[in-house]
Every structure is written in C-alpha cells, then in structure tokens.
Amino acid sequence: MYQAKIYITLRKSVLDPQGSAVTKSLHAMGYDNVNDVRVGRYLVVDVDTTDKEAAEKQVQDMCNKLLANPVIEDYTFELAEV
C-alpha cells in the first residue's frame, strides 16, 4: 500500500487572507523576522496498490479533479510505501 501526504496551499499570486492575519499576529508577538505565512490543507491518502507509478498518477488525478482547485491552489505530495 502507498500513502500520499498531500500539501495544498493558495498559489503565490493569490492573496491569502488567513496567512496575512497569522503573519500580523506573529509580528504582534514579537516574531519580527517572519516574512510570510501561507495557510493550507494537509491530507493523508492511503492508496491500496503495489504499483508506485499507478499510485502517483492516481493521486495527481485526485488533486487536479477534487482535492485542490487549480485556479487558486498549488499542491505537492510525498508518496511512501506503508
């Protein structure tokens, strides 16, 4: 079985209001060296297959169709056998 750890964040070109609010809050706490915060989603998806390539393709498909919205979001994932 393969496990995909998927990270989804708003694209760099898209303003992230939650990230801005967190940045401001961190600054208020004294963490002046924080330049930017992006808030995103983290998903762990188990795929029942022994074929790594197939799993990778499937996860990519899932991200493009449902898990991320390509208009505003970027995604990356790590795939590991479990």
Partner: peptide, 17 residues
Amino acid sequence: LLEAGLLPGAMRRNDNL
C-alpha cells in the same frame, strides 16, 4: 457552479476573514 466549471474563477475566504 465555479467548482463545476460552468463559470470561470474561484472563491476565496472573505478578505476580512
């Protein structure tokens, strides 16, 4: 409708959260 692709674009959280 945006998610279905019947209209272009996407929705973000309100800018004042």
